[in-house]
Amino acid sequence: MLQIDNLQVSVDDRPLLKGLSLKVNAGEVHAIMGPNGSGKSTLAAVLAGREGYVHTGGTVRYRDQDLLAMAPEERAREGIFLGFQYPVEIPGVNNVYLLKASLNAQRRHRGEPELDAFEFLRLVRGQMEMMGIPEEFLRRSVNEGFSGGEKKRNEILQMLILQPRLAILDEIDSGLDIDALKVVSKGIQAMRSPDRAMILVTHYQRLLDYVSPDYVHVLAGGRIIRSGGKELAHELEAEGYEGVLAGAAGVAK
């Protein structure tokens, strides 16, 4: 589904990704872990098409297309979803409108008829129940005045409604208490399917107690320096990034 080869990206002439390679197949869940400043959020932003990053080398193929040549909205319509680390507040635009506009933009792109208000609300209500989101939430401005946990649950709600092919969740677990983490994890688990892939960008291992990844990658200095199964996350938890990085540096040399 996604093939990243030797990707290099800079911001203001400062290289942030320095030859990152990663292959993600349908049905897989990949966790990308790493210390602060290792390039995790950069990778998520570049895959979703955020402006301001300069592509200096390497390739990214998504379903046999050149991903980096696509506008952010094309990527979204082609099934890429980015769950934001800091979901944006948009005063004056309500949640229900954004959800509906997003879903219908995708459906138009796929040549499917738009959902009418009734069908749409039926779809949304079911997912809201699962995420423990009250109905009045729909009428509120997007993320405005939401707590950290509400914002993250709203990201997952959007994902559940948009049903992406490739979901990239950037530190979806940050700022969540244990109850909210469970709800968010439940939403992520509900999305696992053989024709869908997920990339979980996270700093901590605790999310992975609830969502068990197929692969764990350690990102440091703009490169993936180690890959393994979910046991690698436990190793990181036990030894810390420094321990794992020191070991990897030895290997790399």
Partner: peptide, 27 residues
């Protein structure tokens, strides 16, 4: 950032712009 957020949800840039401008004005 708000523009990118809306684009990442599938809205084209012009629609996202118009939406943000009108939301600001209506508020």
């Amino acid at each position: 950032t708000a523009l990118f957020y809306l684009q990442s949800r599938g809205l084209d840039r012009e629609t996202a712009r118009t939406l943000l401008i009108e939301a600001f004005a209506r508020a």
